[in-house]
Design a protein around this nucleic acid. Structure first.
Lengths: 138, 138
DNA sequence: TTCAATACGGATAAATTTATCCCTGTGGTT
DNA sequence: AACCACAGGGATAAATTTATCCGTATTGAA
């Protein structure tokens, strides 16, 4: 639910605004959680980080369908939202390690349940997803 | 994760294909659940339906930020994925009632937890979401 | 010297998702 | 007759999200 900040709008106050057209919904808990975890790879990233896979390169190996660039963007968003944080080792070659914040840890039980639910119902879910691709005529 | 079927591609076999460019990920439970519940209003719809708010008009009153059209689309997707089903009363004016399928019911405990998590951390979440809009210069 | 490994991100294109506009139909009410 | 309520969806525009391409930088190894 977050795009990269690519267009900025400098105002006279020295404040830079993100140019978003539609308001972000933040009425209820469901709105809020959507904002921070409904990204294509976010729950995967949180899961792998919770499993101790902490370095960007390792994360990418575990999510080969996504490019490094995209993972970086989503990692930055998770960091902005304070679900994860990272340690940057000041060395060459660079070394970075992500870890869950307390807030990030607190959501893992639910993400794990989501994953289990998906696994439990994988037969059904794959079937309905297949139907999206090939439909009976009309 | 699903668009409306607006462009169809009729093949010689009489099969109609949805023209999707990128493959749908369905490796693990997290992929699968994302496909069926990561829509802007889906968890809200499931929640309200689980609360007995079953008619389209009532759902729209409870989610005024979304248009009826958009809710219809997402309801259709939830129906396609068999998380909800509906009863169409054959009368005038029309009356329709949605209800959760067994599969839909089985996911509600997790969605309720998501909502509670969002409520519990609403202060934090609103704060980080605000930061997306106004940033310190540079 | 050239290449691999490490990590990061600008610019832009592509794809998908969401929103808007407007129309269909029936029966009851004003 | 004109309008309301009900529910639904086609066509298309807009917005957002995701992907691709390519560039930065440093150290060590072949």
């Amino acid at each position: 639910m977050v795009t990269e900040i690519c267009s900025l709008n400098n105002t006279e106050t020295g404040i830079i605004m993100y140019e978003r057209k539609l308001p972000i919904q933040e009425e209820c808990g469901l709105d809020l959680i959507r904002e921070v975890v409904f990204g294509k790879w976010k729950i995967h990233l949180l899961y792998y980080i919770s499993q101790g896979i902490s370095r960007p390169g390792q994360l990418q190996k575990n999510i080969p369908e996504a490019s490094r660039r995209v993972l970086n963007i989503q990692l930055n968003q998770l960091e902005d939202d304070e679900l994860v944080a990272k340690t940057v080792y000041n060395q060459q070659p660079p070394k970075v390690e992500y870890y869950l914040t307390d807030l990030g840890k607190s959501i893992m039980p639910i993400i794990n349940e989501l994953g289990r639910w998906g696994d439990t119902h994988s037969g059904h879910l794959r079937r309905v997803i297949k139907k999206r691709l090939i439909l009976p005529e009309a």
